[in-house]
Nucleic acid binder design. Structure first.
Lengths: 104, 104
DNA sequence: ACAAATACTATACATTGTCTAGCGGAAAAA
DNA sequence: TTTTTCCGCTAGACAATGTATAGTATTTGT
């Protein structure tokens, strides 16, 4: 058998974020908007159900990719941390590929 | 509030590949190896079950990201198409982020 | 007071992934 | 030649995950 040693460079950590359904589309909005709210994401990313969206935001918060701040009137703002902003090159490369090969 | 406006660039097409569990890890091997075989992927990407692996390879083939060629002795070689090679920048940016923020 | 919006949660159900086992063909070992 | 092993899968039962739809509490507008 081949002895492929792959000690350097694993993609696993990133897949644990990017690999979750909806998460890339969600993060994409943070590229353009500084702060984002729950229902904005709900409206703009067509068809996420709120349970899934909630789970994603919790996960992203746990992973220190976004922070949640309660605005005064029982509303919440989500925004990227540095770790989250550092993910943007991934999103941009996905965008570039999608633009090139979009099927529809 | 300057550069990219949201109308251009959606990530959806890429997420339909990258978003599948195991697929980024699988594609990563194609970065290093020219041709890859089923059981190589099975062994090297710890813990994919063959059913899932089979489904991923079928999907990647359908999306024209890899091609399957039957070698003489009833073995199969998989290798990247151009479309697949064009995905490598995505993988590399995921690697870079993972290297920076790997939790363990 | 009443309706609409926000940020969710709850229940039931559908889809997807996983564990384990096994199959048929080909080549290597006995 | 028979047996064993490796390869590239597939099959069935089950567990985890995502979805549709509804509902809740709070706030804001009229």
């Amino acid at each position: 058998m081949d002895t492929v040693k792959s000690s350097v460079g694993c993609v696993k950590t990133a897949t644990e974020i990017i690999g979750d359904k909806w998460t890339p589309q969600l993060l994409r909005f943070f590229m353009n908007e500084d702060t984002v709210r729950f229902c904005q994401l709900q409206n703009l990313v067509g068809g996420v159900n709120p349970r899934t969206l909630s789970a994603r935001l919790v996960h992203l918060e746990e992973q220190d990719i976004i922070t949640k701040t309660n605005s005064l009137n029982s509303r919440c703002d989500y925004q990227l941390t540095k770790k989250g902003r550092d993910l943007m090159p991934v999103l941009r490369s996905m965008q570039a590929w999608s633009d090139q090969y979009a099927s529809k």
